[in-house]
Design a protein around this nucleic acid. Structure first.
Lengths: 198, 198
DNA sequence: AACGAAACCTACTGCTCTACCGGTAACGGA
DNA sequence: TCCGTTACCGGTAGAGCAGTAGGTTTCGTT
């Protein structure tokens, strides 16, 4: 009973933190503001998460579980059509996208507590994407690309489109643009490697 | 003489500000820290730029001039090979890239002073890219894309790669990856539109 | 030589931030 | 019914923040 109530509170706090980070970024999000949003004093919040950084870590971990959960195949790889669905889904949740875009931007600064998280995560996501591309299209992709070379492009496209979309949703149709990219990756014949890398 | 010295100081300040933003982001960059870096008191700095926001605006304006200057053709459009060169150039200046990536990330948060700047800038850059693509490849691009539809992809790719590269330069060869994308945009036959948009 | 502006600085205000310390009240288990 | 744990809150330390007020020095111009 107590446990359940506690877990509920923690979930509330994490949700509020996500919102605050979307609005102000991690550095700009103050503990008091988060606490106020869940109807707690700042000290009450610190009872659940002892430091601000611990709170951020909890947010990141929750998210990590969240989106390594759905959308993957039994062998752990993604399906490319589900990737497109994910982008469509994201387009309906600007809040979440904004949270992680703001966080990603901050994370490149020195000593940011999310930096290591994102670094590790991108390594993992690139590998996952490469596996997906290989499963879907085999070894040869358009332009003589290998799955390993195409994977970072896929990730970059998703992230990059998010920023343009967040800044100006009316001018950028994110899901359509991402589909365009997938078309590009699909529609063309795979030729011999044009500029092989070592 | 005085004027020259003053302009020199301003330039120093702007350079230091760029550094500080790269290290801590805009919100995390304090006036005192910037001032110290140029050997001024915080109030001495405020003599040149009356508010923190004015300082940021000056940084953005300087950058705006800077990179709408080189690389464009007489008619104001870019050349695509110069775009690849720009990416290569950026790969040698992690500081600058970091500054603007951090700023872009922050700018999606509410009420950020750089938000309008980036919004306007991306609109303009997309238009510029579309013009370049049209000049270079004509109306039909691979996958049935129009220049207007490919333009945001080009921009997104540049931005997205920057984040991956900043987080893990050893794992991501940014210029090569961008070249891969350009190859993708080039190497394939232009087919009829597959999924035309309204 | 006198003047005015530019280029700073010291001191300070008022605010916000994270985090610690020490309480207290409720509650579930023994 | 006692007792330990959980779930908080008030107070406050201690630091940093942007920005103001009011100086003084330097220096080019007249």
């Amino acid at each position: 009973m107590v446990r359940a109530r506690s877990a509920e509170r923690r979930a509330e706090i994490l949700r509020a933190t996500l919102e605050m980070i979307a609005e102000r970024g991690y550095r700009g999000a103050s503990l008091s503001a988060v606490a106020e949003r869940v109807g707690l004093s700042q000290q009450g919040l610190l009872h659940y998460f002892p430091t601000k950084e611990a709170l951020l870590v909890a947010v990141l971990e929750e998210r990590d579980q969240w989106d390594t959960g759905g959308g993957t195949r039994s062998d752990g790889t993604w399906r490319i059509d589900l990737l497109a669905s994910l982008v469509e889904y994201n387009a309906m949740r600007p809040g979440i996208v904004q949270t992680f875009s703001a966080l990603l931007g901050e994370s490149v600064t020195e000593g940011h507590p999310a930096r290591e998280f994102f670094t590790r995560r991108y390594t993992q996501v690139r590998a996952s994407m490469a596996a997906m591309l290989r499963a879907e299209y085999g070894e040869r992709l358009p332009g003589g690309l290998t799955p390993e070379r195409a994977a970072p492009l896929l990730v970059a496209m998703m992230d990059g489109l998010q920023y343009q979309w967040l800044l100006d949703p009316d001018s950028v149709d994110m899901p359509a643009a991402f589909q365009d990219f997938l078309t590009l990756l699909r529609s063309t014949e795979s030729s011999a490697p044009e500029n092989p890398r070592s």
